[in-house]
Design a protein around this nucleic acid. Structure first.
Length: 579
RNA sequence: GCGUCCGUAGCUCAACGGAUAGAGCAUCUGACUUCGGAUCAGAGGGUUGGGGGUUCGAGUCCCUCCGGACGCGCCA
């Protein structure tokens, strides 16, 4: 409840209830929102007036009269019936001191923690990671961090593609190459050519095709030698994935692996349980379920195929097994799928079937955390010059190289070692922030120049704001924790708006958490950084007129640094001490 | 054909049904040789794709048309 907007809403609610009186069903939400006319505005009087059949301004005036906000805020009726809220400086200052003493910096932990499974990243074994995996990985990681921060029990699951028909050809290709050579090719990250070559042989060589098909049968039959070769592929691939995760600084590790193969033993049971529930139908020799409301291009009902004509299990069955596993074994309340928007219909159908079967019942909820495509500067799907998908590792290399060059150019005084470390932090931060800072559901345009710019809504701008604050403390020689019990003075407009921005951290994190929208947190941090630089420009810290003022401004600067660092950390982004 | 998502300033993007649609970039004008100017203050720039509707109030909800992306039965 550190966010003053939340606090004032709670304080206004009784006044609204009083004015609403005994009118049945009257809505009493104060509807407190940020405002450009005041610190906040309460819009609830308009809706309430409608329900009461009264004049909105009169209702607003009654609410103002009934409200008890002494020492917190002053209220004023404005326009057609808005209530403008202006917080008392002392209240803001005391609130700042409170969040400065709080490890969570004012963020409110959930009063009813959830067990949330977050399914993200999910690269494919023996296949290169590309920008599509980047989005899922970064967005999922951010949501995992935010929900963990707010006290939820977060289970990260990396649903890697480690099973299925392609593994016949992949294993045969591995044998052709020799195990050592294949392991080398996979470990140096030349997976594209490994996969492509296997596919090429499968298409061109009939004998290879026969071998590959036979190999699939052996794999599914549990042949020990085949399983050993399969594990080799998986092992080399996950080693490679882990190296990418480490460079990106995402939380995923081997402990989070829950590949498709992990659900094999459940697939028969999925079909049996659907049959027992009376949901299974035969269609063209396949076992299917028809969730209502889905039709194909002919207008006929669209099935979810859970066992195909030849007895195989398509991926919908695996996804259903996942739902069962996550609900019944993990005891999850919330299932998040950080998956591209094109999969929307598939997931909807899977969720529908899971609900029909009773596996997914309120309040347990499954949510498709969808995201759009990554586009190049030409507005088309992001591709390399040669037209291939861009390897994630190449993308990381380039980001770090570009950032290092920029840092070296801007600050030649840093040692080479520092330049490369800062370049790494800035480059990785830039990639992540660019991705997280726009509404995830929309396609997003990948642009090196923009994401690495040191001005505007970018990671480097935020990191720079942090570095400047650290510079102040190096210069003044005061340990930040010495100013953490200070109640700051809010004497200038810049100090005041910085205070308001700092106190809004709570609400920004909450919104990111409940709506799975990292860009809300990004926008917040950018606004905070802007408020800080305006403050920095207008309010001398080291040369403040009095010691008291200097201490106060140091406290504001320190708190800003902590909120920036924590906010960026929740996005998975590091901060440099200097840059 | 059916379905989903998207369309906001020159460009990239915000805006939980609330007032005069906001930022950044770019452009233009300013800022005590500055605690890091990698900054700050300000200006211009819009029929929110078109048209209807619901609402006290619509960029936001509903319908329709236009434009774009992506899905649509045995791959994952």
């Amino acid at each position: 409840m550190a966010d003053p907007l939340v606090s004032v809403a709670a304080l206004l609610a009784p006044a609204f209830r009083q004015v609403a009186g005994p009118v049945a069903g009257a809505v009493v939400d104060p509807v407190v929102r940020p405002s450009d006319r005041a610190d906040a505005q309460a819009n609830g009087a308009l809706a309430l007036a409608k329900q009461l059949g009264r004049n909105p301004r009169d209702v607003a005036a009654d609410v103002v009269a009934a409200a008890r906000l002494d020492g917190v805020a002053t209220l004023e009726v404005a326009g057609p019936g808005f209530i403008n809220v202006t917080f008392a400086d002392d209240y803001l200052a005391a609130s700042l001191a409170a969040i400065a003493a709080d490890e969570l910096l004012g963020a409110s932990q959930s009063s009813s923690p959830l067990t949330a499974v977050i399914d993200y990243s999910h690269p494919n074994v023996a296949k290169e990671m590309h920008v599509g995996h980047l989005r899922s990985t970064i967005i999922g990681d951010c949501i995992a961090r935010v929900m963990t921060f707010l006290g939820h029990r977060v289970i990260r699951e990396n649903h890697i593609g480690d099973w299925g028909r392609p593994f016949g050809m992949l294993i045969e290709h591995l044998l052709d190459l020799g195990e050592a050579e294949a392991a080398h090719e996979l470990s140096v990250g030349d997976m594209n050519s490994f996969y492509r070559e296997a596919g090429r042989k499968f298409a061109a060589d009939e004998a290879f095709q026969v071998r590959a098909r036979q190999r699939v049968v052996e794999l599914q039959g549990g042949d020990p030698e085949t399983l050993r070769l399969w594990r080799l592929l998986v092992h080399e691939s996950t080693r490679y994935f882990n190296s990418v995760y480490a460079r990106l600084g995402v939380l995923l590790s081997d402990d989070d692996l829950m590949g498709e193969s992990a659900y094999n033993h459940m697939l028969g049971a999925v079909v049996d349980r659907l049959a027992a529930a009376g949901l299974l139908q035969r269609s063209d020799g396949a076992d299917v379920v028809f969730p209502p409301g889905f039709v194909n291009r002919e207008g006929d009902p669209l099935p979810v195929i859970v066992r195909n004509r030849v007895g195989g299990y398509p991926y919908a069955t695996t996804d259903l097994a996942c739902v069962i596993d996550r609900v019944e074994r993990v005891r999850a309340d919330l299932l998040l799928y950080v998956v591209g928007a094109p999969q929307a219909q598939h997931l909807e159908m899977v969720f529908a079937v899971a609900q029909m079967a009773g596996w997914l019942q309120a309040p347990t909820e499954a949510v498709h955390v969808a995201f759009g495509n990554v586009l190049g500067s030409d507005g088309k799907m992001f591709k390399s010059r040669s037209g291939d998908t861009v390897k994630l590792s190449d993308l990381i290399d380039e980001a770090v190289a570009r950032a290092t060059r920029q840092v070296a150019g801007k600050n030649p005084e840093l040692s080479p070692a520092e330049q490369s470390e800062v370049g790494r932090i800035v480059g990785i931060g830039a990639i992540k922030y660019a991705d997280l800072s726009t509404d995830r559901v929309k396609d997003y345009a990948f642009d090196w120049e923009r994401m690495l710019a040191f001005e505007g809504n970018t990671a480097p701008y935020l990191q720079y704001a942090y570095a400047r604050i650290r510079s102040i403390f190096r210069r003044v020689g005061v340990e930040p924790h010495h100013v953490r019990s200070v109640v700051p003075v809010l004497g200038t407009p810049q100090e005041r708006s910085l205070a308001l921005a700092l106190l809004a951290f709570d609400g920004a994190v909450a919104e990111t958490s409940t709506r799975y929208l990292p860009h809300r947190l990004c926008t917040y941090l950018f606004e905070l950084a802007q408020a800080f630089t305006a403050f920095y420009d207008a309010c001398p810290v080291l040369k403040a007129e009095t010691d008291e003022l200097r201490t106060s401004r140091l406290a504001l600067a320190d708190l800003t640094a902590r909120v920036l660092a924590k906010g960026l950390d929740l996005l998975g982004i590091d901060v440099p001490e200097r840059m």
